[in-house]
Structure formats: structure tokens, C-alpha cells
Write a protein that binds this DNA or RNA. Structure first.
Lengths: 198, 198
DNA sequence: TCATCACATGACCACCTGGTCACAAATAGA
DNA sequence: TCTATTTGTGACCAGGTGGTCATGTGATGA
């Protein structure tokens, strides 16, 4: 965790540092990300950086923590959502909200996606906590008779999130195409592609 | 491409270098992989390395090329395969063959997976050529009346391959669990998870 | 006014990176 | 045997990395 000196900083400076870090972590993975680049973007001397953070990982974890808290917050406050909506509707709706947030905060979505790629213990934990809400919704939909009871709820969510991640990555700037493919994929998972035999 | 000096090398030495590279690229992405580490593992001096290859990328592309050729070869010669099998059966069968190959050649599967992560132009191209066979099989299954004609064939294959990749990564050494999850995912894609309304 | 203390700063460090190059050794041809 | 050409070799280079630290600065309180 950051040192007390960091928290004592003005909000403006804190934000400047955070944004610079977010930007760097949105284009490079942890090991590739450069502290020198971050301090240059933030406009602070190197010495100051190490007065605020113990090391690069310290900053990384901080960024992850803040960003994922925001993400979870976002997931919990999906506006204008029908309370009776099924998992699929909630996921597509949330994804759209998520992308909107990225328009305001540059690097926001990209960093979150890159972190998903990362398979370190911390990110695994965070990933788990952010997906469990959806897993529970699958369970609920099973009880409501919308989803076959024998399917593995976590597997379903994993399928959607891994696809979502990759698709976002591959389509880059073309958000519309990404959303369309995600919708299609979800539809497939929901209904399958096999011709009905009944 | 490697220089002529490399191809003039004895098979033993060529293989030693290739294996060392494969090992390195199986645990680190291109940018993280270290030439120094590779030459140390291969037991050749630095000067020699640059007499064989123009640079790190040159070696990387060579490894990709050889490995992907092997992979495609493997995909085209699935032994003991029912010619009437549908895409799903072929995919699961091929995946198993692929994992078997990894048991003989250490780092083989891992490197292939890491390259899938890589979104550079070359790997994109290779990925496309290795998936198109499966895409065509989906099309064939559509004609056979096994798959709904309106679904996007490429999307289906993408869904499976991205999930496969991630699942392999997350489950690490537990190949059995990986294969089970892959089977389950494919079943979901095939049949869907929604309760039938008809 | 002086001492204390938190913070600011950038030169500096050891280390590692991909890549070069002058030279040594070997090989081949005459 | 002499020459020409190819191949082997590791010291070396510039540049980047994460991280340190002595010193400077400015505020606070006595």
C-alpha cells in the first residue's frame, strides 16, 4: 500500500499520478510498464515517486484496488435496470455502462482488461469477487426456471468474460462490433447452436 | 528469417537452439523473453546468435513458424477420427492430440498458448489460418443440418478457442480439469443453457 | 530565532537489455 | 602451402530498468 505521504498529497496531484499510472498500465503489462514513463507523465521527480510508493508493485496494486472498487461499484449500481432482468440482460447492460465509463476516464477499460490477462494471485482474487455477483444471478435464474439446473454457473460466466475480454482486445477501437459479437456470443450460450431435435 | 549460417548448422545444434528458444517463449512473452537466457540455455555465445539470426524477432518468427506448421500438420492428420464427426468432436479430439504432443516436446503447448495471447499481425495471421479449417467444418455442419444456419461460424470458433486458451492458462498443470471444462463449454455452445420453451 | 521534521529532488547505482564488432579460428580452394 | 572466405567468440556499447540517498527546502512549533 502507498505510504502516508501519498495520501497527504493534494487531490489534484494524487489524481495526476493515478491517471498517469492508469495510462501506462493500459498499454503495458505490469512487467513491461515503466516507472520512468509514469513519473514523466505525472510530472513528478523519481525521488518523490519512491516517497509515495514502496515500489512499482505497490503502485500497481493500488491502481488495481481503486479501479476494481470502482468497477464493482459500477456493477452494483446499474441504472435503469429491470429488477427482473436475467443474467444476460444484466451483463450486456453492465458492459455498456462500463464502456461509457471508459469514455470519461481514458485507459480505464484497457487497464481493466489488461489486468484480466494477468494471472497473479491478487488479480485472480479480484476477478473472482467481481464475477461472483453474476454467478449468483445464474443461480437465481436456475431457480426461476430460466436456466437448466445442471449447468456449471461459474463456467458460464467464465465463458462470457473470457470471450468478452478477447473480443474487446481484438476489435480494439471498434466498440460497436465488440458489443455486437458479445451479444451474439451470449445468445449462443443462452440458446445453443444445435438444431433442435425435438 | 534466419540467416544461411543457421541452416548450415548441424541438426543437433539447430535443435538445441530451437528448444532453448521454445522454452524461453513458453514462460515469457516476446518482449519479456531474454536473448541472453536463450543463448545460455542453448550453450552458444552471443556473437554466434547474431550470426544465425538478425535479431530477437527473427528467432521468434522462426519458432512461431515451425511450431505452427507442426500444429497445422497435427490438425490435418488427426488419427482415428470418424470422417463423419462434427466440429465439436474434431475439436475435442484434436485438443487431446495437441496436449499429447506437449508431453513429448516440453514447452510446446505453453509456447503455442502464449503466442495466442500475442496480438501482433503475424500471430493474428497464423491464428486465422489455423482456425479456418474449423470454421469450414462449422459451415459443413450447417449444410448437414446439424447447426443453425444463421449463426456466425467464425464467432463460434472464436468462442471455443478463446475459452480453451484461458481455461488452459488458469488451470495450469491440471489437464484433466481443463479438458472437462472445455467439454462442458462446447456442450453449452452446442445446446445452450436456456430451458426449452417449446 | 532556531531546531525539528516532513517532504522534494535529481544525480547516481547496479543490473540487465538487445545488439555490434574486431579479432581468432577453422575451413576450403588453388 | 598460401590465400580467401566463412564462422566462432566475448568484450563492449548505448540505453533502459527499478531503486537509493544525500542534500535542499519550506513549514511548524517552541
Amino acid at each position: 500500500m502507498p505510504k502516508s505521504t501519498f495520501y497527504n498529497l493534494s487531490n489534484e496531484k494524487k489524481e495526476r499520478i493515478f491517471d498517469a499510472a492508469l495510462q501506462e498500465f493500459s498499454i503495458r503489462t505490469f512487467s513491461q510498464a515503466s516507472v520512468n514513463q509514469i513519473i514523466k507523465n505525472a510530472g513528478i521527480p523519481k525521488g518523490s515517486f519512491y516517497q509515495y510508493f514502496n515500489n512499482k508493485e505497490d503502485l500497481y496494486l493500488y491502481v488495481i484496488e481503486v479501479a476494481s472498487k470502482e468497477k464493482i461499484e459500477l456493477f452494483n449500481h446499474v441504472k435503469g435496470m429491470d429488477p427482473d432482468a436475467d443474467v444476460f440482460e444484466v451483463i450486456t447492460h453492465t458492459t455498456r455502462e462500463f464502456l461509457e465509463r471508459g469514455k470519461v476516464k481514458p485507459g480505464y477499460v484497457e487497464a481493466a482488461m489488461l489486468m484480466e490477462m494477468d494471472n497473479s494471485e491478487i488479480t485472480m482474487k479480484i476477478r473472482k469477487s467481481s464475477t461472483e455477483k453474476f454467478v449468483k444471478m445464474v443461480e437465481r435464474d436456475k431457480e426461476r426456471g430460466l436456466i437448466k439446473p445442471e449447468v456449471d454457473s461459474e463456467l458460464v460466466i467464465n465463458m462470457i468474460s473470457t470471450f468478452s475480454l478477447h473480443e474487446y482486445y481484438r476489435n480494439g477501437a471498434d466498440k460497436e462490433r465488440y458489443l455486437k459479437n458479445l451479444d451474439d456470443a451470449i445468445k449462443i450460450i443462452k440458446e445453443g447452436i444445435a438444431v433442435c431435435k425435438d
